[in-house]
Design a protein around this nucleic acid. Structure first.
Lengths: 335, 335
DNA sequence: TGCCTAGAAGTTACCGGTAACAACCGAAAC
DNA sequence: GTTTCGGTTGTTACCGGTAACTTCTAGGCA
């Protein structure tokens, strides 16, 4: 007699209804070819008559496999991740994995908490945004012996699989594009300033210094980036450095916000001020003029992650690797 | 002797290390006040020496509780949901629930699949976008006897908890705002045309008809909405109905895209063409001019869902209810 | 006829926790 | 001194599946 009458239909109920053991029912679901066709049909009809819903916890516990993978992203509202996520989900979904999504809010402490949570859930792999983690998170990942993907930026010392692009080089290249077009007093505008934003900023500094130009025209804030903030910060920068010829914004949101502010001020872009963003989101192609940006291969990142991860999950040995998927500069019309 | 040496540290390992039974260790974790302070300390240090990670599946199986809730959203890239989600996550997170996110891609078939998946995971509640579901999904939900939240739009026949706003009325009210400002030839531009978009369109029709005006200036597409699409569709509409005085766009993305197209055409907004969107996303406040929009109380929707759901999870009986959180019209500068 | 084999279903033990209850122990109460 | 009781820890059974192995049966073949 059951201790708790959960009310839930179990394999046992199906088995009794059909007159077989629950193992046979389980087998009919997992390895149908091992069960005779006639019996399989009876089992299937019992299953949907009674409304059986498998208990994932029980299955995972018994088999030691959860068929799920955790994908951590910095923020749900950051559209940069939606294409990456699509690639991942299509690839892993087809192989029978469920993708569990969590968001870190750009905090490696929260990332640590989520890694812990999802390891409790028994995920078979973890996909993390970035290569910076707390020490404790590293310890958890190492001990768990689970495939790990670090994405977005590249690192010299990948934990396992690392797929992304060289953010510093991308920042440098975009700045160089300004310089190639003859702009000299090029500023940098950044928000949030997570690690990747810092790398882009460093890329800007590198290019400016190499050209013997000043890196003083730089305004950053730890606040979350937004259109509105882009406009406000542009205003501050113009006030402080009225001689600015161009501004490289750390991401597309800021660039769009800056563009809107220019429109309000009837500042001609790019004639009076050139602008560029980073990521190549939809909006950069839609504005008037379209925004210059660094187009990142997000869909390809997602696909690559899925492919490499599946190989690891199928047994490929741990062999830390960094894969650089590059980027493309798009001049748009704002530069 | 273990059948599979999973390598994973279990309660049993901790127990042996400390010299107690695993039940005591389990208790130290779940109900620390029932374990003596000295022992608790020894257990805790053993736990982080050995790096114990609880097995959620085992706990869920034994206790019949998963401490998790599923949140389905139409699309990860739809920023409408990020604030709703924040409210939900804060409320439920504080009460010890983990929120599992899935996205339906605006498809009720995919929603059905996800409902099934998450019921397998044993979620203790489901939060769904909208009130339209497949018959099978309804059957699953009913049989599972799990609290369900339907959100975004309101319905006459909620399955359980329904929190949202009257999309038809909001569409009507925004259209009325055009009319109040003296606009007469007001068109409607819509994409994706999911159920909520249809309700907004219907609201527009209602207002126009009530005012004795034509509802012919309407262009919709099943394609996903985007900035670019907003621009393209605006172009089509202007070509077809050059006499348009204003356009109500089914969402903010389309409205922003339409605004950008106006800027390219040097069409003055609102003097030559008034525009409005729907949702009150950030971008509507940033553009030049700011976009008129229907501001939806997304954060409050999230908070309300969390509150009502927690009450149900704590045992409040099933008593289907619709809660209307209203909306606010913001004229911006584009209308 | 008897042996072998493959296919189909059953047996058993176990995954790693938790609920419910039992047992123990020392101090306060009688 | 015995009873009682609250605070601690242990015992047992079970959650709902799955892996590995065993058993049974019918048919093929020498």
């Amino acid at each position: 007699m059951p201790r708790r009458s959960s009310g839930r239909v179990t394999l046992q109920h199906i088995a009794e209804r059909v007159g077989v053991t629950k193992v046979t029912v389980s087998r009919a679901l997992r390895e149908p070819h091992l069960v005779s066709a006639a019996l399989r049909l009876r089992i299937e009809s019992a299953i949907d008559e009674l409304g059986y819903i498998p208990n994932h916890s029980a299955g995972a516990l018994a088999s030691g496999r959860s068929h799920s993978v955790a994908l951590l992203i910095p923020s749900l509202s950051n559209s940069v991740f939606s294409e990456i996520q699509r690639g991942i989900e299509e690839g892993l979904g087809a192989a029978g994995y469920q993708v569990l999504i969590g968001h870190t809010g750009y905090s490696i402490l929260e990332e640590e908490r989520l890694i812990d949570t999802y390891l409790c859930y028994g995920v078979e792999a973890l996909i993390l945004p970035g290569s910076r983690h707390t020490d404790h998170a590293r310890r958890l990942l190492t001990r768990a012996r689970v495939p790990v993907v670090e994405t977005l930026e590249l690192t010299e010392t990948p934990l396992d699989i690392n797929v992304g692009l060289d953010q510093h080089e991308a920042g440098r290249a975009m700045t160089q594009t300004f310089l190639d077009q003859g702009y000299r007093r090029v500023g940098f505008l950044g928000a949030r300033m997570d690690y990747r934003a810092q790398l882009r900023l460093a890329g800007w500094e590198t290019a400016m210094r190499q050209a013997g130009l000043s890196t003083e025209r730089c305004l950053t804030t730890p606040h979350p980036s937004s259109y509105r903030l882009g406009g406000e910060m542009l205003a501050s920068m113009l006030e402080r450095w009225p001689d600015l010829e161009g501004i490289f914004c750390g991401n597309d949101d800021l660039a769009a916000g800056a563009l809107f502010e220019c429109q309000r001020r009837r500042l001609d872009v790019p004639a009076q001020l050139a602008l560029a963003g980073f990521n190549g989101l939809d909006i950069t192609e839609a504005t008037a003029p379209p925004l210059a940006t660094v187009v990142t291969p997000r869909r390809r990142i997602g696909d690559t992650i899925a492919t490499r991860l599946l190989a690891r999950l199928k047994g490929a040995p741990l062999a830390p690797i960094s894969e650089d998927l590059g980027f493309r500069i798009r001049r748009g019309g704002s530069l």
